[in-house]
Design a protein around this nucleic acid. Structure first.
Length: 491
RNA sequence: GACCGGGUAGCUCAGUCGGUAGAGCAACGGACUUUUAAUCCGUUGGUCCUGGGUUCGAGUCCCAGCCCGGUCACCA
């Protein structure tokens, strides 16, 4: 015993594994058919009638990981968990027989087992499977985290997400919720007649957004490629091709810093609708997000951190100029007033385009106050090189961004389809700033595509991760990304 | 990149004025056939993030570094 006590926790479990093998049991298990999920089983459970015979309940089969174990002499109470919930199992020496009891004595927290038995209630009213036989499904060789607190260390939760998921029910719930949000998006798009497409994630020109790209290399062609920062320009080529309604859900990559709202790879939803405009995209945005809320439940009035957000549609649509006037207290049509107010707000204005100064003032003064959901519409044209200008006022671009609690969740345009203007805007911006910093990188093939005729269209992008943060009440993007980027553990 | 906070047992955490390492859970041994984070008795378990320094003596103080988190910067 003294020798045994010096063994590691893993060694102790290895020893139990060996004993299982001696009993002729495969510690790594096999196919296990015909079990019900714990949630299904709870939903179909008969009511608890006092004095009912627990041996008369329905026969059931469940499978799951052992989350809690309470030994009580010749009976053990287990709590097993699957991805739908947790359930108590009673294992009695007499009830499971000699072999079953030998298995029961070798069980550890974290092991995965199958249980056949009758469903009933204990004298305290707890829904319980009274085990008649146990099937060993998988040995866990490492101890799970503390049973009450779970895994709380942020670093370990991200690095060992597999442990976080099985030990923190809330975490699993967030990712199942994320899955529902995405499924709901696909359903809504299908209902509206959109086709899902896939476009290149490796591109020779990283266009469609302003962000530093990751660079990779293709050996056979001996060319450098960029991981895409947006799918936009390819999806618009599809409009030219006659794909009238298309959308893509996929990963984009931006070589930038990490923060509670930024991960270098994240999931973008983009949709393009021929013969629509940015107002069509606002309607679509509301449908998509309201549909997602319906699918995850909880209603339109939702908690987010300390805040409460009311998603009841329709959401206000306010112009950029109005909001700037309201929050900055200036006349946005007066460039000198904008410049003075921007400097007051700490924005460096020297050598910058007046629209860029206005944009930075907006970010400094307005953004954080947009509790939302609110559509900010009609942006200064110079910061929108891919957007159609208003016919009535070419200084304004038909663009909106959706804000919630100061977070930009969606961005959409009436798409610019004039190839000559597009080419000019590419050249103008190229002349004015470093290519890397510009949204407008010259893309000759894209201009050629526009010359063939792209129908007037609305286009929309929604940041799926940020949407999930807001809908699933998480304040950091790492809580909605299964494996967020981390520095490697060992160098 | 800057600033702030953190890093102690498998997990969750305490550690006073600088005096040589603690609890709960888990594990191991024992009691217990209706428990609910079961309970009760006993036992084991430590590179105190790393490397220097000060000191008779450092988990604790100082310096440098590593990793994580937060804020800012960056980032449409």
């Amino acid at each position: 015993m003294a020798d045994e006590s010096r063994e590691s926790l893993e060694d102790v479990r290895m020893e139990k594994l060996r004993k299982l093998a001696e009993l002729g049991i495969d510690p790594w298990g096999h196919r296990f058919d015909g079990h019900q999920s714990i949630a299904e089983l709870r939903a179909s459970a008969p009511p608890n009638e006092p004095g009912a015979d627990s041996n008369a309940g329905p026969t059931v089969r469940v499978a799951g990981r052992i989350m809690l174990r309470r030994g009580q002499g010749k009976v053990n109470f287990l709590q097993i968990g699957d991805w739908s919930g947790r359930l108590q199992v009673m294992v009695g020496q007499k009830q499971v027989g000699e072999n079953g009891w030998k298995i029961a004595e070798l069980l550890d927290l974290g092991d995965i087992i199958g249980v056949d038995g009758r469903l009933g209630y204990t004298r305290t009213g707890e829904l319980t499977v009274f085990a008649e036989s146990l099937t060993f499904l998988t040995k866990s060789l490492l101890p799970p985290p503390e049973k009450w607190h779970g895994l709380t260390d942020q670093e370990q939760r991200y690095r060992q997400r597999y442990v976080d998921l099985f030990s923190n029910e809330e975490s699993l719930g967030v990712f199942l919720g994320r899955s529902k949000v995405i499924a709901s998006f696909r359903r809504t798009m299908a209902e509206k007649g959109f086709a899902e497409v896939e476009t290149p994630t490796m591109q020779s020109i990283a266009g469609g957004a302003a962000a530093r790209p990751f660079i990779t290399h293709h050996n056979a062609l001996d060319i450098d490629l960029f991981l895409r920062i947006a799918p936009e320009l390819y999806l618009k080529r599809l409009l030219v091709g006659g794909m009238e309604r298309g959308f893509e859900i996929g990963r984009v990559y931006r070589n930038e810093g990490l923060s509670p709202r930024h991960n270098p790879e994240f999931t973008m939803f983009e949709a393009y609708q021929a013969y629509g405009d940015y107002h069509s995209m606002m309607d679509l945005t509301e449908s998509l997000i309201c549909g997602a809320i319906e699918s995850i439940g909880g209603g339109y009035i939702r908690k987010w951190g300390e805040a409460t957000i009311d998603f009841t549609p329709p959401w206000p649509r306010r112009t950029y100029a109005e909001l700037l006037a309201e929050h900055a207290g200036i006349d946005p049509s007066d460039p000198s007033a904008v410049k003075a107010r921007a400097e007051e707000a700490g924005v460096h204005t020297a050598g910058k385009d007046p629209d860029v100064v206005m944009s930075e003032l907006f970010e400094a003064v307005v953004e954080d106050r947009l509790d939302g959901p609110i559509f900010v519409i009609d942006y200064p044209a110079a910061i929108c090189p891919l957007t159609k200008r208003k016919t009535s006022n070419p200084a304004v671009a038909e663009r909106f961004e959706l804000y919630i609690r100061g977070i930009e969740l969606a961005n959409a345009y009436t798409e610019l389809n004039d190839p000559n203007l597009q080419e000019e805007l590419f050249r103008k911006q190229l002349a004015g700033q470093k290519e890397e910093d510009s949204m407008a990188k010259m893309d000759d093939d894209f201009v050629r595509a526009l010359k063939h005729g792209m129908p007037p269209a609305g286009g929309l992008g929604i940041g799926i991760d940020r949407l999930c943060m807001v809908l699933l009440d998480r304040t950091t993007i790492r809580d909605v990304i299964l494996f967020p980027l981390m520095r490697p553990e060992h160098q």
